[in-house]
Design a protein around this nucleic acid. Structure first.
Length: 508
RNA sequence: GGUCCAUUCGUCUAUCGGUUAGGACGCCAGGUUUUCAUCCUGGAAAGAGGGGUUCGACUCCCCUAUGGACUACCA
């Protein structure tokens, strides 16, 4: 079948979008764009009880930040011809299909309350609502028609369940896993619709919407694989087999340590973000950290995520979104779950930080400086960033690497002092002050030449002088080339810092 | 418990019957450097186990083990 590629990302607004969901969205997007198709965003809010305000906006903003653009649906100015794209707003649409199934005898009404079901589960081991047990329950298959009618009229709550015929091999063709076969006897008569809120459950809403929205490919997490046969059956029951989308079930993102699927809690526990952006929980007032606020570039997050479960088959590791769109393919998606390796994520960001235009990085750093009430000439900031960025993984690391350019040290790293500040040092530094004070041209080349000549002439030890010099200027034994530093902070600041170091360190 | 999916270095992965099993992150060592990083070079590090099929299996099949998902009037 040759039809337009249309995929959807269909999250449930029960909280912030988590990184696994982001990857699902990304793969959908890459697939759609590669095939010149459409990417839809549909909000699956059929569970009124779990709805979280703000979650939808969060999802839209996160996708936007990452550069995963939506062509149709929620978050788009002109949502599209299949509006609305929020399932809660599509109530009226689903009822029709529920009735169609009911009329055809492919679904039935069940009155069993959660309490009844609980009791049955306690009573019968491995209880499942299916062909074997539905005869024991209170439903339109066991109750006389007039009683069913009466109960409904009385306002009794009910659900509509799919009627699964037992003992049939249901085949699902999966683009990643090949053919998956399941016996219909192990599928239970899933609830399709609940009268309590007049809303369908995921299974029905999902199939109906995918059909109506002309979805060609369903690309979703592996957790859906077990219910895929049910969905196949639903397409059949509804008479839509010929336009059933193709399925691709993505491997899961697993915890970096131990076992299990990566969860929201792992972020706090292991100290790295599992969300694209910060999220403030309205109830607990807790904030979960996000990649954006942690200093990640969206390109790095996309690149990192793209390679968690997919590879190009080459040894290339750095890909732009455009390259990913060109190269992505579902048959190079791996089948097994991927443990989430945060260290590699850092490396990706490091790579992007190095390859970004200097102006862009400097501009981002300026914002951090402003936040610290530091006002500095942009040309100078650019030079500083140029000197220190290779040692940073994140924009936020830049401060730690360069703070001494802006603020003179007030304390001196103890270990470095012990190692680098000798008895003869104060006198040497005093001489250095004199020397520097006499230099007119404070350029890197000039100061370096003069100081080195002085060291040689005096017969001093190069390392001894330079390390003490560094300690005085930086406050510890780190940082870029000394002459680069002093040329940026200037003569006056340099000599002042030396003077101060001599005074303070003399007290030890 | 049941059903389904999966299984190559610690991690992400390449390999689509014949390779010294390759790359990347991380780790270790060396080099560069006035320091710390960066960077460069090198190194250690893998086919879960057992049966088949085959001239030949990481690769195909079966069993076992292990991991994971699902098993709600949640998605």
């Amino acid at each position: 079948m040759n039809r337009r590629v249309r995929v959807r990302f269909a999250p449930s607004p029960t909280g912030p979008l988590h990184i696994g969901g982001v990857r699902t969205a990304l793969y959908n997007y890459l697939f759609a764009k590669q095939n010149g198709g459409d990417m839809l965003l549909r909000i699956e809010d059929t569970d009124s009880a779990r709805f979280v305000p703000g979650a939808e906006d969060y999802i839209v903003e996160a996708l936007n930040w990452l550069g995963i653009t939506i062509d149709e649906g929620v978050g788009v100015k002109q949502p599209g011809k299949h509006a609305p794209y929020r399932q809660s707003e599509r109530k009226a649409i689903y009822r029709k299909y529920v009735d169609q199934l009911l009329d055809a005898g492919l679904a039935y009404i069940a009155f069993d309350t959660p309490v009844d079901l609980e009791a049955k589960r306690a009573e019968i081991a491995n209880f499942q609502y299916d062909a074997k047990t539905r005869g024991l329950m209170a439903n339109s298959l066991t109750l006389p028609a007039d009683e069913v009618k009466a109960r409904i009229e009385r306002g009794e709550q009910y659900v509509v369940r799919i009627k699964i015929e037992p003992n049939e091999e249901i085949k699902v063709q999966d683009l990643i896993r090949g053919e998956v076969v399941i016996n219909s006897s192990v599928i239970d008569d899933k609830v399709l619709f609940k009268s309590s809120d007049e809303l369908p459950t995921y299974h029905l809403a999902n199939v109906v919407d995918d059909y109506l929205m002309e979805i060609s490919h369903v690309i979703r997490g592996e957790e859906w694989l077990p219910s895929a046969p049910l969905h196949v059956l639903l397409y059949r029951y509804l008479g839509w087999t010929d336009v059933m989308p193709e399925f691709a079930h993505l491997p899961l993102l697993l915890k970096p340590d131990g076992n299990g699927k990566l969860s929201k809690r792992d972020g706090d526990r292991l100290g790295f973000p599992v969300f694209p952006m910060n999220w403030k929980d309205a109830k607990t007032a807790e904030t979960s950290s996000g990649y954006r606020e942690a200093g990640y570039f969206p390109e790095a997050v996309v690149n990192f995520l793209a390679l968690l479960g997919w590879n190009s088959g080459t040894e290339q590791e750095i890909f732009s979104m455009q390259e990913l769109i060109e190269l992505f393919s579902l048959d190079r998606v791996s089948k097994s779950g991927a443990k989430f390796d945060y260290e590699k994520g850092k490396w990706f960001n490091h790579k992007y930080l190095q390859s970004k235009p200097l102006e862009e990085v400097a501009d981002l750093f300026q914002h951090i400086l402003i936040g610290k009430d530091i006002v500095e000439d942009s040309e100078k900031v650019k030079k500083i960033v140029e000197l220190v960025r290779e040692r940073a993984n994140f924009i936020t690391d830049l401060w730690e690497q360069s703070s001494f350019f802006f603020i003179a040290p007030t304390t001196y790293d103890e270990k470095t002092v012990r190692k680098r500040w000798k008895d003869e040092t104060p006198e040497q530094m005093q001489e250095l002050i004199q020397l520097l004070d006499g230099i007119e041209d404070f350029s890197v080349e000039n100061t370096e030449e003069i100081v080195k000549e002085w060291i040689a002439a005096k017969g001093y030890n190069m390392g001894g002088i330079m390390n003490a010099f560094r300690l005085s200027i930086v406050g510890e034994g780190k940082g870029p080339h000394m002459f680069d530093i002093i040329s940026l902070i200037g003569k006056q600041e340099t000599t002042a810092r030396l003077q101060k170091a001599i005074e303070i360190l003399a007290l030890n």
